[in-house]
Each structure stands twice: as C-alpha cells, then as structure tokens.
C-alpha cells in the first residue's frame, strides 16, 4: 500500500498486521506506541516506592495493583508496537535503559512525597485518559485494541487518585497546604503533558494525516483544562496565577503558552533533564542486575526449541 492510499483509507482501526503498510506509517506508529509503552514503565518506576509508603493496607493494595496494571499496559503496548515489524520489544526496552527511549515529560520529575501522588494518579492519569480515549479510534488496530483495556483500568486509577486527593484536601490543615504546594509545583508540568502547541509539534501533521492521532495537542489540552480546572477547584485547590489561563466567552479555557518553560520541556524531551536521567539510569541498573536471569531463560528457550520464555511466569 502506498502512502496516498494510506491517507485516503485512514480511519479508526483501519489497518492491521495483515496490511502491507509503507515504512513511513510503520515508523511513525512505532514511535508513538513505543513512547506510550515506555511512559507506562517509567510511570510505574516512579510510583513504586509509594506502594511501601502508602498510609494504609487498602491504599497499599490498590497502589500495588495500579503499578502492576501499568506494567501490564506496557506489555500490551509493546506488543502492539512490535506488530508493526520495526522494532522488537527487547530493542525498545534496551533503548529505554540506554536513555534513547522517550517517555512522558511528567515521569522525568522526582516524586518525593505522598501529597504528590494525586498529581500523578489524578491529574496526569486523567490527562492520559483523555488522550487515550481518542486513541481508541486510531488507525492501527492493535493499538486501538490495547486502548480498550488500558482505558478501562485507567478509569479505576483516576478514581483512586481522586479519592486520595479528596482525603488530603479534607485532612489536616498541613495536609491541605502541602497538597496545594505540590499542585502548584506540578500544574505547569501537567499542562505540558499535552506537548507543545500544534505549530511547534514536529510529528503531529503526519500522524494525523494517516489517522494515528485523532486530536491535536491543543484540542486535547483545552478539553483537559475544561474538565479538570472545575475538578481541582471542587476539591479546594487554587489554580496558580501562572501559567495564565484565559477563559473564553463560551466558558472554555485556554492556556498562555508563553508562560510555560519550554526550554525545560525540550531538555526533558531529549532525556537530558537531571532527575529524569537518574530515573532512567536507576531502572537501567535494576534491569542489568537481573540480566543473568534473562540469559538463563534464553538459554532454556534456545535448547527447548526457541519459544518465548513464559512457562515459569
């Protein structure tokens, strides 16, 4: 299939591994899904210490399940990416360890305290939900299919995240204050979740033209603000003065892009931001420490006829 045919046919769940697709499409889809899969893994990496630090058994259980779900989403997404025939899962995981794999800006920042948990589990996950809901109509069918399951589980995470936020914002004065401070720190990053404005986004035009992306960064960001500014206020959070947010005549919101730190954003996008780099390397070290097990399994698989090592899992 040539690129023009792809563009003509581009529609929800239009293409599957049965189609012979041009390299440009397969590479763009791989880049997008790999980024998504990597983000699941790095999000889980960031949150894992809070399984231990959760302040009750029920919260601990829910948090362990959430981290597990994210690894499951990563697994599903790498499979959807692999099916494009550009990169194997091993290559993608190795790239992530080497610092070549890209992932969401929010997961490059350190997570220091429980009061920051809703910033990820409610706001970032809520933002992700918005984007993922549109991706159920992406043109690469395996990706859309993965989104069905991911969206279903993500819904529970956001609910749990909102419950944690509600508990903190109805807790002691100190809890409320610290949560507000965390919100102020995270709010610009959360808005940047949706990436640069459409005119600065490098990959958008092509991805949109072949049906991979369903909505532009600007559309998604504005829709998120419309939904989450009222939610934040409902829980007693004050929206910081910066970045400035305009209320349009129809009551919808738009952010003043110039108020956001795009230098930091693009440093992060290159995997050059210090805390993020530490997290990439921390994960790499953990992966290297179990390299011996993977080698043992591979030897097994080779002698047993080269099948995927899953028997003991």
């Amino acid at each position: 299939m040539d690129l023009n045919t792809v563009k003509e046919r581009a529609g929800p769940r239009e293409f599957s591994p049965a189609d012979d697709l041009p390299r440009e499409y397969r590479e763009a889809a791989t880049r997008m899904i790999e980024f998504h899969a990597n983000s699941e893994i790095m999000g889980a990496y960031l949150e894992r210490p809070f399984i231990r630090q959760a302040p009750s058994i029920d919260r601990k259980l829910a948090f362990s399940a959430k981290v597990q779900d994210e690894i499951g989403h990563g697994q599903l997404l790498y499979r959807a990416a692999e099916s494009l025939g550009v990169k194997t899962r091993e290559e993608m995981l190795d790239d992530l360890a080497n610092g070549d794999g890209k992932f969401l800006n929010c997961f490059h920042y350190p997570l220091k305290s429980w009061v920051e948990i809703p910033m990820i589990s409610f706001f970032v996950d809520g933002a992700a939900m918005r984007r993922q809901a549109t991706l159920r109509r992406t043109s690469w069918e395996p990706y859309a299919h993965a989104m069905d399951k991911v969206c279903f589980e993500e819904g529970f995470h956001v609910k749990h995240g909102e419950d944690i936020l509600k508990e903190l914002m109805t807790g002691s004065r100190a809890e409320q204050q610290r949560t507000q401070e965390a919100f102020e720190e995270w709010w610009p990053r959360i808005i940047q979740f949706f990436g640069p404005t459409d005119d600065k986004s490098t990959h958008h035009d092509f991805a949109a033209s072949v049906g991979l992306k369903q909505q532009s960064n600007d559309e998604l960001r504005d829709a998120f603000l419309d939904q989450y500014i009222p939610k934040a206020r409902k829980h007693g959070l004050e929206i910081p003065d910066e970045p400035r947010i305009r209320e349009r005549d129809d009551g919808t919101y738009a952010v003043e892009e110039g108020d956001l730190d795009w230098d930091e954003f693009f440093t992060i996008a290159k995997n050059d931001y210090e805390p993020g780099l530490g997290q990439i390397n921390g994960r790499k070290q953990a992966q290297e420490a179990v390299q011996w097990v993977r080698e043992t399994i591979e030897d097994d698989a080779t002698t047993a006829g080269g099948h995927a090592p899953q028997a003991a899992d």
Binding site: R48, I51, K60, Q68, A286, V290, R294, D313
Partner: peptide, 24 residues
C-alpha cells in the same frame, strides 16, 4: 513489592506483583 518494576521480565514482574497482592 520491591520486585515491582524490577523483575527480570514484564511477565515475571506481573506474576510476582500478583503474589504480593495475594499475600497482602
């Protein structure tokens, strides 16, 4: 739970996370 996001493969990660939640 220390093995979550640190197990040898995504599959073994999921399996041990499962056991951790069972024990919890």
């Amino acid at each position: 739970t220390e093995w979550q996001v640190r197990a040898p493969s995504l599959e073994s990660d999921l399996a041990l996370a499962n056991n951790a939640q069972d024990e919890l």
